[in-house]
Structure formats: C-alpha cells, structure tokens
Design a binder for these strands. Structure first.
Lengths: 213, 213
DNA sequence: TGGCGCAGATTGTTGAACAATCTGCGTCGA
DNA sequence: TCGACGCAGATTGTTCAACAATCTGCGCCA
C-alpha cells in the first residue's frame, strides 16, 4: 500500500511553515509556477487550499502573499486556542491512549532542550498540543486546531528568537501532562490556560518590541 | 462602494446549501462547468475552496461529490459544536451588543413558526447560533463554527422533515437567550448544552430511521 | 459464476492566449 | 512644489484545447 503522493498544496505548506518565504512575501504565480515546475492553473488550485487554511492571503487581482499575522490575529489565535484546547482537556480522560503520544512529544522536547536544538523544541511543543487535541477524538476539532497552529507558526517565524519562544514552555507542557494524570482534567485545563496566557504575552511582547502592528 | 461580486465558490455554496444537489451526488467537472458557464479550471478552483469547507468531498481521480455526513460525522459535528458554542457562551457578556442580533434572529424564528415556514425557522435557528458565536468577537471561531454549520446543514437536507427538525428548538433558543440575560453565562451555557444534546439525538434518530450509515 | 482486460469516460495537468485589473511613473496643471 | 491624471507594463483572472493518468463498466474467457 503506497502512501498517496503529497499534493502540491502539501509541498507548499511545508515550504511556508519551514520559513522558505518571508511572512508577508508576495507569491507571484508565474515565478512560483516555474520554480515548482507546475503550471499556473495547478498552482492556483493549491493557493485556494492554502488560503482556506489561513497560510496565505488572497486578494483578488492582487495575488497571494504569505500570511503575516498581525497583533490582532495573534490575540484571536490565542483566544481560540484557549477555548478549544482547554475545552478538550477539561473533557479528556487521563486514560486515553493519546496521553502516551503527548508524553512522547514532551520527551522529545525535553531531549531537544538539552541538545539546544530550539527548532526541534518548537516542533515538539506543537506536536504536544496537537496530541492534546487528539484526546477529543474529533477530526473537526483537529482540523480547526491545525489551522490555528499553522497560522501561529507564521507568527513564530516572524520572531527569530526560537529559544526564548519555545524553551520556557517545555516545563509547562510537563506540568500540564502531570496535572492531567495526577490531579485530573480540571487542574490540567487550568495549567494549560495559564500556559497559553503566558505564551501569548511572550509573543505579543516580542511583536511590540519589533514595532509590529 | 460596490460589494465585491460573489465568487464562484460562493455561488456554488449557496446552491449546495439550498439543496440544489442531492447530498452525495457527484459533481461532474465538465457538466457543471458547462451549466455554470465557466471553464473547468475555474470550477476546479472553486471545488478546492468548498472541499476545505467540508461542503464537498474530493477524492483524487474520482472527482468531487456533495458531502453527505455520516452518523459519525454528525456525532463529531455536535461534539465540536458543544465545545465551541458552550465555551463561547460561558465566556460571553450579557451586555455584548451581539445579544441584540441573537434576539433578532430568535424573533424571526418565532414569527416563522407562527407562519408555518419551516425553512425560515431553520435559517433563523442557524442565524441565532452564528450570532451566539459572534459574542466571542473571534473571526477564527466564527470561521470554524461556520464550517460546522455548513456541514450540519447538509445533514439536515438529508432529513426531509424540517418541521420536526427545527420547530422544537425555537423555544430552546429563547431559553438560552433568557438564561444569558437573566441568570448569566453559566446557566445559559448549561441550557445550550442540553439543547445541543437533544438536537443531536433528534438528527441521529432520523438518520437511524432512514437506515443511514 | 467469477476474474481479466479492454474501451470509454473522467479527472489531472499543461501551455498559450487574451481580458480585466493593478501598479508605478511621468506629465500636466494649479 | 505638490497633487491629480493617464498611460504603459506587469500581474492576475479566465478560457480553450489537448493530452496523460486513472477509474469504471462491460464483455469475454476460463
């Protein structure tokens, strides 16, 4: 059984999330189509997918550019994250098999902290929260959360100080996980809410220091 | 200032939500492009947008069909609705200007009940819940909820008994609104949760009577 | 009866072409 | 000097025709 070949939208999403394009950069159809070796029509289909994901912004007759979350966007993303993530956690069972996936992601992050590999720390943090959402067993909540995570990643890209952005939160993830298995979902949700409030503050602080709107 | 012309995806979404196509029906590119008077490429772009919204299902090399929510989908949609809608309501202020919008939608539904216009009752019910989400002032929660609402509408379409589907819930909406302005967000959220549980039960019951998977 | 393979239909993708719209720049007039 | 105007080039929106890749249904054969 072969894996389905990754679609063009998948390829582009990876490139954008990896930071191959500056947030806010315009993506010229002709140039990008040539670079990717596809036709403009095919590229435009991929653009429509990414635009729905919030990864690129499409303005009619003005083309698409890599999304570049504003301060208001960051605030909104965190508002939505708090509601969805805390809601999922509050209703989650500490016995759900997905808890093991959370633990794996956590441990991957902790190893990466010791290795000083902040990019991997960031990836592991994201994986931890994705695993957290998976406790809901809800494809639609996973979809919504995935969109938020992708957009947030663009905000992280605009801040080029991955250590300060990700390092402090590995310990916080551990606190959330231990609260879940030890004190129960309510306590875990409270810890997660504090986590998200602090993370938002950090991002907004960096934004304001960058003079970013 | 002119309104932007509705995109092809908007037109198709309206047609699908209006039930112009049977849920599950295949949408042939060539036939539909000819019918809409657009080229296949343009139509394919619109398909990509609708697929991300969950309104159509796209299987590679097999084309797109109108989505037809399964029982599992309905359960998932309601799980996500409970989490998002109740979460929003719990955090909402009874003084938010959006409460007036909720009241308007509610009254429109109540008039439609008296007129026996069940389609309008259904539309008003949807508008009530959309207005409820707007209390969060979060574009992203509105986006996620909009996707759920569109998919749910397809489930409603599959059940052709709009009266039983929508009539009972106008009074429940009133209860939610009065709980919000009277007893506060917590009580309102509890009323809403009961609403959603009962609504889900009704849809699943109809599905099972239809012998639907 | 059940599996195989072919033919037709459909989707995926391309390239070129043109219309519609935007953007930047130079000119003109106050 | 400064702002409005308009033109020219660049970019996007859309169409069309063609072909490759894949799927589907049907008849054939064992």
């Amino acid at each position: 059984m072969l894996q389905p070949a990754p679609s063009l939208a998948d390829v582009l999403r990876e490139q954008i999330i990896a930071g191959d394009f500056e947030p806010g950069a315009r993506l010229s159809e002709a140039a990008l189509a040539a670079q990717l070796g596809v036709s403009r029509n095919t590229l435009r289909e991929a653009f429509r997918v990414l635009a729905q994901h919030g990864l690129v912004e499409h303005v009619p007759h003005r083309g698409v550019s890599v999304a570049s979350p504003s301060t208001a966007d960051v605030i909104d993303i965190y508002r939505a994250r708090r509601l969805i993530e805390c809601g999922v956690l509050r209703a989650a069972s500490p016995l759900h098999p997905g808890v093991a996936v959370m633990r794996l992601a956590l441990e991957r992050g902790e190893s990466a902290v010791e290795a000083g590999d902040w990019v991997t720390v960031g990836t592991a943090n994201m994986a931890f929260h994705r695993a957290l959402i998976a406790l809901s067993d809800s494809p639609r909540l996973e979809r919504s959360h995935g969109q938020l995570a992708a957009e947030l990643r663009l905000a992280f890209l605009a801040i080029d100080d991955p250590e300060s952005l990700h390092r402090p939160f590995v310990a916080r993830n551990r606190a959330v996980l231990e609260a879940l298995t030890g004190d129960g979902p309510e306590a875990a949700a409270d810890a997660l809410e504090r986590y998200l409030i602090d993370s938002e503050r950090l991002v907004l602080g960096a934004y304001s220091r960058m003079g970013r709107s």
